[in-house]
Design a protein around this nucleic acid. Structure first.
Lengths: 72, 72
DNA sequence: ATGTGACTTGGAGTCCGTT
DNA sequence: AAACGGACTCCAAGTCACA
Protein backbone atom coordinates (compact mmCIF):
# COMPACT_ATOMS: atom_id res chain seq x y z
CA UNK A 1 0.00 0.00 0.00
CA UNK A 2 1.81 3.03 -1.32
CA UNK A 3 -0.21 5.68 0.49
CA UNK A 4 -0.02 3.94 3.86
CA UNK A 5 3.75 3.58 3.56
CA UNK A 6 4.08 7.21 2.62
CA UNK A 7 1.98 8.25 5.59
CA UNK A 8 4.02 6.15 8.00
CA UNK A 9 7.16 7.72 6.66
CA UNK A 10 5.81 11.23 7.19
CA UNK A 11 4.64 10.43 10.69
CA UNK A 12 7.93 8.86 11.61
CA UNK A 13 9.89 11.83 10.32
CA UNK A 14 7.54 14.28 12.01
CA UNK A 15 7.81 12.58 15.39
CA UNK A 16 11.57 12.42 15.02
CA UNK A 17 11.49 16.19 14.65
CA UNK A 18 9.40 16.55 17.78
CA UNK A 19 6.63 18.25 15.81
CA UNK A 20 2.89 17.87 16.34
CA UNK A 21 0.58 17.50 13.35
CA UNK A 22 -0.43 21.08 14.00
CA UNK A 23 3.18 22.22 14.03
CA UNK A 24 3.99 20.41 10.81
CA UNK A 25 0.83 21.77 9.22
CA UNK A 26 1.90 25.29 10.02
CA UNK A 27 5.42 24.82 8.67
CA UNK A 28 4.11 23.22 5.47
CA UNK A 29 1.31 25.73 5.01
CA UNK A 30 -1.24 22.94 5.03
CA UNK A 31 -4.25 22.18 7.20
CA UNK A 32 -3.91 20.27 10.46
CA UNK A 33 -6.55 17.68 9.53
CA UNK A 34 -5.03 17.27 6.09
CA UNK A 35 -1.69 16.23 7.61
CA UNK A 36 -3.56 13.71 9.72
CA UNK A 37 -5.31 12.13 6.79
CA UNK A 38 -2.06 11.97 4.81
CA UNK A 39 -0.34 10.20 7.70
CA UNK A 40 -3.18 7.70 7.83
CA UNK A 41 -2.72 7.00 4.12
CA UNK A 42 -6.13 8.31 3.17
CA UNK A 43 -4.91 10.87 0.67
CA UNK A 44 -3.38 10.39 -2.72
CA UNK A 45 -1.12 13.38 -2.20
CA UNK A 46 0.20 15.31 -5.17
CA UNK A 47 3.77 16.21 -6.10
CA UNK A 48 3.61 19.83 -4.95
CA UNK A 49 2.39 18.87 -1.51
CA UNK A 50 5.02 16.16 -1.25
CA UNK A 51 7.60 18.90 -1.75
CA UNK A 52 5.93 21.15 0.83
CA UNK A 53 6.03 18.35 3.39
CA UNK A 54 9.63 17.52 2.55
CA UNK A 55 10.68 21.13 3.07
CA UNK A 56 8.78 21.35 6.33
CA UNK A 57 10.42 18.14 7.52
CA UNK A 58 13.84 19.22 6.33
CA UNK A 59 14.45 16.23 4.12
CA UNK A 60 14.87 15.75 0.38
CA UNK A 61 11.57 15.04 -1.40
CA UNK A 62 12.76 11.67 -2.70
CA UNK A 63 13.48 10.72 0.91
CA UNK A 64 9.72 10.57 1.48
CA UNK A 65 9.30 8.02 -1.31
CA UNK A 66 12.10 5.72 -0.30
CA UNK A 67 11.21 2.24 0.75
CA UNK A 68 11.26 2.23 4.52
CA UNK A 69 12.21 -1.36 5.31
CA UNK A 70 13.76 -0.75 8.68
CA UNK A 71 11.68 2.09 9.86
CA UNK A 72 9.60 1.40 12.93
CA UNK B 1 10.07 24.58 -10.84
CA UNK B 2 9.24 21.24 -9.34
CA UNK B 3 6.81 20.06 -12.01
CA UNK B 4 9.08 21.01 -14.91
CA UNK B 5 11.99 19.14 -13.36
CA UNK B 6 9.84 16.11 -12.80
CA UNK B 7 8.65 16.18 -16.39
CA UNK B 8 12.17 16.42 -17.75
CA UNK B 9 13.18 13.48 -15.65
CA UNK B 10 10.31 11.37 -16.97
CA UNK B 11 11.04 12.31 -20.56
CA UNK B 12 14.71 11.58 -20.20
CA UNK B 13 14.03 8.18 -18.65
CA UNK B 14 11.38 7.36 -21.23
CA UNK B 15 13.65 8.21 -24.16
CA UNK B 16 16.44 6.20 -22.60
CA UNK B 17 14.06 3.24 -22.65
CA UNK B 18 13.27 3.81 -26.30
CA UNK B 19 9.57 4.22 -25.50
CA UNK B 20 7.14 6.60 -27.17
CA UNK B 21 4.68 8.60 -25.05
CA UNK B 22 2.04 6.19 -26.28
CA UNK B 23 4.13 3.20 -25.29
CA UNK B 24 4.78 4.58 -21.84
CA UNK B 25 1.13 5.51 -21.44
CA UNK B 26 0.13 1.94 -22.19
CA UNK B 27 2.65 0.44 -19.79
CA UNK B 28 1.63 2.86 -17.03
CA UNK B 29 -2.11 2.49 -17.68
CA UNK B 30 -2.40 6.22 -18.22
CA UNK B 31 -3.59 8.31 -21.10
CA UNK B 32 -1.31 9.26 -23.99
CA UNK B 33 -2.06 12.99 -23.78
CA UNK B 34 -1.62 12.94 -20.03
CA UNK B 35 1.95 11.65 -20.33
CA UNK B 36 2.66 14.52 -22.69
CA UNK B 37 1.36 17.17 -20.32
CA UNK B 38 3.23 15.65 -17.38
CA UNK B 39 6.47 15.73 -19.37
CA UNK B 40 5.83 19.40 -20.15
CA UNK B 41 5.41 20.08 -16.42
CA UNK B 42 1.78 21.11 -16.75
CA UNK B 43 0.40 18.60 -14.27
CA UNK B 44 0.65 18.32 -10.52
CA UNK B 45 0.79 14.52 -10.64
CA UNK B 46 -0.37 12.48 -7.67
CA UNK B 47 1.58 9.88 -5.69
CA UNK B 48 -0.17 6.85 -7.13
CA UNK B 49 0.57 7.97 -10.67
CA UNK B 50 4.18 8.68 -9.79
CA UNK B 51 4.41 5.03 -8.77
CA UNK B 52 2.70 3.89 -11.96
CA UNK B 53 5.18 5.85 -14.04
CA UNK B 54 8.11 4.54 -12.03
CA UNK B 55 7.00 0.95 -12.54
CA UNK B 56 6.48 1.54 -16.25
CA UNK B 57 9.95 3.08 -16.51
CA UNK B 58 11.52 0.35 -14.41
CA UNK B 59 12.99 2.67 -11.80
CA UNK B 60 12.36 3.23 -8.11
CA UNK B 61 9.71 5.86 -7.42
CA UNK B 62 12.09 8.06 -5.45
CA UNK B 63 14.35 8.05 -8.49
CA UNK B 64 11.81 10.26 -10.26
CA UNK B 65 12.02 12.88 -7.50
CA UNK B 66 15.79 13.02 -7.28
CA UNK B 67 17.45 16.26 -8.20
CA UNK B 68 18.74 15.87 -11.71
CA UNK B 69 21.66 18.29 -11.80
CA UNK B 70 23.53 16.75 -14.67
CA UNK B 71 20.68 15.53 -16.73
CA UNK B 72 20.38 17.16 -20.13
C1' DA C 1 -3.44 17.10 20.24
C1' DT C 2 -5.50 13.60 16.90
C1' DG C 3 -9.28 10.84 14.26
C1' DT C 4 -13.02 10.99 11.21
C1' DG C 5 -17.12 11.97 8.01
C1' DA C 6 -18.82 15.30 5.17
C1' DC C 7 -18.61 18.95 2.29
C1' DT C 8 -17.17 22.55 -1.83
C1' DT C 9 -14.02 23.87 -5.28
C1' DG C 10 -10.22 23.50 -8.30
C1' DG C 11 -7.56 20.62 -10.86
C1' DA C 12 -6.16 15.72 -12.07
C1' DG C 13 -6.96 12.60 -15.58
C1' DT C 14 -9.66 11.08 -20.00
C1' DC C 15 -11.15 11.52 -24.60
C1' DC C 16 -12.27 13.74 -28.82
C1' DG C 17 -10.06 16.08 -32.41
C1' DT C 18 -6.53 19.10 -35.17
C1' DT C 19 -1.82 20.65 -36.10
C1' DA D 1 5.29 10.44 -33.02
C1' DA D 2 4.21 14.56 -30.30
C1' DA D 3 1.92 19.36 -29.00
C1' DC D 4 -2.20 21.41 -28.12
C1' DG D 5 -7.37 22.65 -27.60
C1' DG D 6 -12.00 21.96 -25.69
C1' DA D 7 -15.11 19.47 -22.96
C1' DC D 8 -15.92 16.30 -19.82
C1' DT D 9 -15.71 13.24 -15.17
C1' DC D 10 -13.96 12.42 -10.92
C1' DC D 11 -10.79 12.99 -7.35
C1' DA D 12 -7.20 15.78 -4.63
C1' DA D 13 -7.21 19.96 -1.96
C1' DG D 14 -8.69 22.29 1.66
C1' DT D 15 -11.86 23.17 5.53
C1' DC D 16 -15.23 22.23 9.27
C1' DA D 17 -17.79 20.18 13.38
C1' DC D 18 -17.47 16.90 16.48
C1' DA D 19 -15.81 12.61 18.72
Amino acid sequence: MVLIEFGKRVRSLREASGLSQEGLAERAHLHRTYIGSVERGERNISLLNIHRLARALDVAPDELLRDSEGLG
